Computed example of a mutant assay.
Amino acid sequence: MASSSKLLKLALPFVRTHGFSREALARSVLELPNGEAHSEPLSDTAVSSLFGEGDNARRTLVNAWLAEGVRYMQTAEEMSSPPPQLREVLRIRLQYNEPVLEHLPEAFGLLATPSSGFHVIAPFPALKHAGRIADEACYAIGDQSLHLSWYSKRASIASIYTAAELHQLVSPNTAYTFLDTLLETSQTVSKSLDEVSLFSDYVFKGWKGIIKSSGIQL
């Protein structure tokens, strides 16, 4: 049997057609190289053994997809010379969302809902998601901010990206224009988010809005 990490990567293309589902994970073995490929998807028991019980398997897939999004940003950045502008970097990440937009609210809902089953939305996955994108964007553009300015800059970028991502789910055709507008007023955004607590609250409310707008019952 191939490793779970290899199968996770093979499962990612199935997210487009099957969403962040156990079925997408089960179909991963169909894409193995000749001689290794299975003729049938994995059994539900095998999916649980490899990726987790119940919705935990789906959370594993969502996290793998988010990690691949960072690699997608890095690949695009490596092909850019000179280093890209912030606008380009954030556009690249929004582009990565496009094939699976209809499935993202449910994916975010899975991450934000504890595996314990309590219907409480936790802010930490939202902050981690926004923070990773902000960190990668700063690295890509060669940002050298120090101390408090480091937090301020990343808070600003993370809040802009979160707002653009929320807008993308509601209005995909105007997402890039909306992002550009936010970046043009980024100085104002940065001033309003100097406090990390305000930033945390902003990102959490943004994700909560994404989840609730989808009609998902949490």
Results as ranks from 00 to 15, higher is better:
T45D: 11
A175T: 07
A140M: 08
S48T: 15
G131T: 14
S200D: 04
H129N: 13
L25E: 02
K191F: 08
T75R: 02
A122N: 06
A24M: 04
S192F: 01
Q95E: 14
Q217K: 01
L166Q: 09
H119N: 08
S192C: 07
F14V: 08
E106D: 11
P83N: 05
P82F: 09
P33I: 01
S190I: 13
P13L: 01
G206F: 00
S149H: 13
E53H: 15
W150E: 14
I216Q: 10
P84I: 04
V203F: 00
S39I: 06
H38N: 11
H119C: 10
H129A: 15
I160Y: 00
T181Q: 14
A164E: 07
I216K: 10
Q144S: 14
R87L: 12
G69N: 05
L12I: 14
S145Y: 03
H147Y: 11
Q187E: 15
I121L: 11
A137H: 02
I160Q: 02
A140Q: 03
W207V: 00
S5K: 13
E40K: 10
R87T: 07
S159Y: 05
S197P: 11
G35W: 07
S214D: 06
I210R: 07
L50W: 01
A164V: 08
R71W: 14
Y202I: 04
F20R: 09
K128L: 04
D194V: 09
L127W: 03
L198M: 07
V15T: 13
E68P: 02
H147L: 13
A76S: 09
Q144R: 13
G206Q: 01
W150G: 05
G109N: 04
P13N: 00
S49N: 13
M79Y: 01
T181N: 13
R132P: 01
G209C: 07
R22N: 05
S200P: 06
A155G: 15
K191D: 15
L42H: 08
S28D: 03
M1I: 07
S49M: 12
G142C: 06
G19W: 00
V62T: 10
P172Y: 00
R58D: 01
Q95F: 04
L179N: 03
Q144H: 08
E23N: 10
S171L: 01
I216R: 12
S186V: 07
V29F: 06
E40R: 10
K212A: 11
A26D: 00
L32H: 08
V29E: 03
Q217V: 08
G52F: 14
R154S: 06
S152M: 12
I92H: 02
N173T: 12
R154V: 08
L32R: 12
P123L: 09
T181C: 11
V189C: 08
Y161F: 15
E53P: 15
V170Q: 11
R71C: 08
A140I: 01
L12E: 04
L110R: 03
V89C: 02
M79D: 09
V29I: 05
A2V: 07
A26M: 04
E53G: 06
H18C: 13
A11Y: 04
K128A: 04
E106L: 12
V170F: 00
F199T: 14
G52M: 15
H18G: 14
P172K: 07
L183R: 09
V196D: 12
S192D: 11
V100L: 02
R16E: 15
L86A: 11
L7A: 06
F51P: 03
H18I: 03
S213Q: 11
H119Q: 09
L110T: 04
S116R: 00
Y202C: 02
G215Y: 09
L146Y: 03
A112P: 03
